[in-house]
Design a protein around this nucleic acid. Structure first.
Lengths: 341, 341
DNA sequence: ACGGAGTTCTAGAACGTTCTAGTTCCTTGA
DNA sequence: TCAAGGAACTAGAACGTTCTAGAACTCCGT
């Protein structure tokens, strides 16, 4: 039972408490706690022992207040996006070994991006990592003027000065999906798009150019969709009533594709027998055995690692040209795509 | 364009900067920024103007360091649980009007509860709200000895002293589900459980007692499940091969139920024609038009509000007896339940 | 015996706020 | 005219750290 309350008064133990117990100065305790050099082996042990005994934990806020560096990366993410959850998981994993902490700020109903970013700034984050930000480019530029900012999964055109961008080559992903379907023998391939969501424009463009390149321009059909299951199902409803019905469909993302799958199953359209379905993201969802979705894999760990990497590089003064890191996606073939019959 | 950099040197503007620009003391600026009384109307305007001009934002950490109160609630949640996302959303909404800020700390692969809680403590949170904590009761008790702790959606038995518990009456929920199915005419009702997940034991118990109470003890069948789609699908696979096949199934939660639904659809078992399916949580998932799941609704907004409320009450010194807040769930009947044929 | 070079340690000033205890100045009532 | 009371404002000490100097001590070669 190492951590009994053990505080003289009611307050939380501080450097001074440890110091007086170990019979040294607070400065020395600080040195020991940070693992800095400049303390004798014996004293170090004694201090650590004292700290352990009274259950001392350094006060992160006081620490940050004093030291010029905060080693804090602010991450803005959407609570309702599984893809963001996966990214955050990757960001945690990448930040720890680099010696940085993560401050999370969620975008949710009644809590917009503006607010989310403000709290991060108030917490003195050194850099911002924004997942799929929807804020206008001007706002991002303004932020980028204040501190390093990394935008993940959103293309910015023209590029905002000082802003780092880490994204998947969405157009290339769409091209790969189309190529896969064409190789299977499909010709009539529809696309359910993501409207104004980040990446949607690129995926739409990639689909269109791929179709044209394969000489299938006449089959191009883009249905308004979105990034939720409901919007996918809605588009699928339209699709299933269309004659002739396409033999394959590329959905904006996995959530959207799941909605499509579900509606098809319910209305007796066999997948992949009657129609092939391809998603985008390779989120946890797609990998589930009972969904088993063919999808365009975004390398989430890589995106996260790169986002952290760019932020850290900028912070550590590397004079890298602010720029775009584009990651090539990789098609993951699973059970929802097959030759048309 | 109100927020140009506008800082003399490269640093972020501070109270002193505003003070010298407005020609007053830092103390007065502090008063004005906090909206405290004790400043003249004219000066107040002048200070605010100066602050606006140089783009001043108070430093949250310095502020917290000085003022004894931090008005910070630490929230631990699971990144991969949609139900937690919904709760967090509700917590944000409840905390704001109460004058509290939220610090998020995620539990993810490679980042356990221990670590998540430690960072919250380091940030000097005043109270902890733990969503579905898995930590042993002893650990929770230890925490509760240090600061107010609210455990959401996990029953603790025997009750841990000093710990606040906010939860849904899981057993009652299961009873409602069974009653609904029985009223529809079902007798052979199976339950896919949640193993060691928070709430699972209570739901299991509720199912069992309800079955007995309706004189259906001989039909009791509990399949090992879990809280993910995969585990639900796995159990459904077993179930669909069982003869005689139950005419209804109560799944541990909505994710699990979704897995069940999907497997049934794929294997040609009609829902609700051949078998009725009931979930638990009423998360976003269940409400999706294409899933349309009958489910036991947890009042998420209420749970969140209560969690914040209890934490705040304890902080503001209300000497409420530490105790359990149990919320009665409400069955939401949708499209996956119908009379057996 | 002495100067230099490490080491190990300490005093005290930051960091950007809020808080306590005043001080100054204006009203106002007797 | 004067004290009392309040409003408007300020100086300076906190808060719990880290950082900059420098002090005290040891170890060496000369």
């Amino acid at each position: 039972m190492p951590a009994t309350p053990a505080v003289p008064n009611g307050k939380r133990p501080t450097l001074a408490d440890v110091a007086s117990r170990a019979g040294v100065s607070t400065a020395l305790v600080s040195i020991v706690m940070r693992g800095a050099k400049g303390a004798g082996e014996a004293t170090r042990e004694r201090v650590l022992q004292a700290a352990r005994e009274i259950g001392y934990r350094p006060d992160a806020r006081a620490r940050l207040l004093r030291s010029h560096r905060s080693h804090l990366l602010g991450v803005q993410f959407g609570l309702q996006h599984p893809f963001h959850s996966d990214l955050v998981e990757g960001i945690y994993a990448a930040a720890e070994p680099a010696g940085y902490q993560i401050a999370l700020s969620a975008v949710a109903a009644g809590r917009g991006e503006q607010r989310a970013v403000e709290t991060l700034l108030d917490d003195r984050c050194e850099a911002l990592i924004l997942l799929g930000p929807q804020a206008p480019a001007a706002r991002l530029a303004e932020l980028a003027g204040q501190l390093p900012v990394v935008s993940v999964a959103r293309r910015l055109r023209p590029s905002v000065p000082g802003l780092e961008v880490v994204r998947t080559a969405d157009d290339e992903g769409a091209r790969q999906a189309v190529a896969h379907l064409v190789a299977l023998g499909h010709r009539d391939i529809a696309h359910i798009d993501g409207g104004r969501a980040p990446g949607a424009a690129d995926r739409r463009r990639g689909y269109r150019t791929a179709m044209n390149r394969h000489g299938l321009g006449e089959y191009i059909r883009i249905l308004p969709g979105g990034l939720t299951e409901e919007e996918g199902a809605e588009a699928a409803r339209t699709l299933s009533a269309t004659r002739p019905r396409p033999t394959a469909v590329l959905a904006f993302n996995d959530r959207c594709a799941t909605g499509v799958l579900d509606l098809f199953l319910r209305s007796g359209v066999a997948v992949p027998g009657d129609i092939s379905v391809v998603g985008f993201d390779d989120s946890h969802l797609a990998r589930l055995a009972h969904i088993d979705l063919t999808t365009v894999g975004q390398d989430i760990a890589r995106l996260a690692g790169l986002a952290v990497g760019r932020a850290v590089a900028r912070l550590e003064g590397a004079e890298i040209p602010a720029g775009e890191q584009v990651i090539t996606p990789r098609l993951v073939v699973r059970g929802t795509s097959a030759p048309p019959r």
